[in-house]
Amino acid sequence: MNSEPRLRELLDKYFAAETTLQEEWELRELMKDGHLPADLQVFQGLFGTLNAEVEEKLNPAIGNLVMAQIEADHAQRGKIIPLQRGYIFWWPRVAAVAAILCLGLWWMSKPAATPENELAQAEKVIDWSKYEPKTPEEAFKITHKALKKVAVELDKGTRIAENMEDLGEMGKVLQ
C-alpha cells in the first residue's frame, strides 16, 4: 500500500502543529519505511531520534542504586526519631490560650474611661479629703458660688454672642 500521500499529509499537519497524538504515532510508524522518496528521507533522522527517545527507559538498576545509597546514608547518621508533636508543640498552645484568657479578663474588667472613673483614680493619688468642707452647708455655699460664676459667665457670653448677631443683622439691613 502506498502510504506516501498519507505521510505527506501528516507531515504537513505535524509542521503546522495540528497533529493529534494518534497521528504523531502513525507518522513515526510510516517514517520507519525504508523506501521513502529522497525528499522525505531527510525527516527520517528527526523521527528516528524521537522514536529512540520515546523508547528509552530508565534502567531499573539506577533506582536500586539510589535506594541503596539513601539507606547507607541513614545508617551512617544513626537512628531517625519521628517528630513527637505532642511534646514539642503543646506549650505554645497553652501560652496562647492563657494570653487570650488574660486579655479577655483584662478587657472585661477594664473600667470605662469616663470622667467619673478618672476622678476616682485621681482621688487615689491625691488625698482630697483634706480639702473637703466640713459640713454640707459649707459645701452648698461653695457649690452655689461656683455654679453662680458658671451661670453668670455663660449668660454674659451668650448675651455678647446675641448682641453680635444683632449687629450682624443690622449690617445686613444697612447693606
Partner: peptide, 12 residues
C-alpha cells in the same frame, strides 16, 4: 484648694 466629694453632693 476645695474639693466637694460625690458623697457631699449626695447629701446636698
Amino acid at each position: 484648694v476645695v474639693y466637694i466629694s460625690p458623697k457631699l453632693f449626695q447629701m446636698l
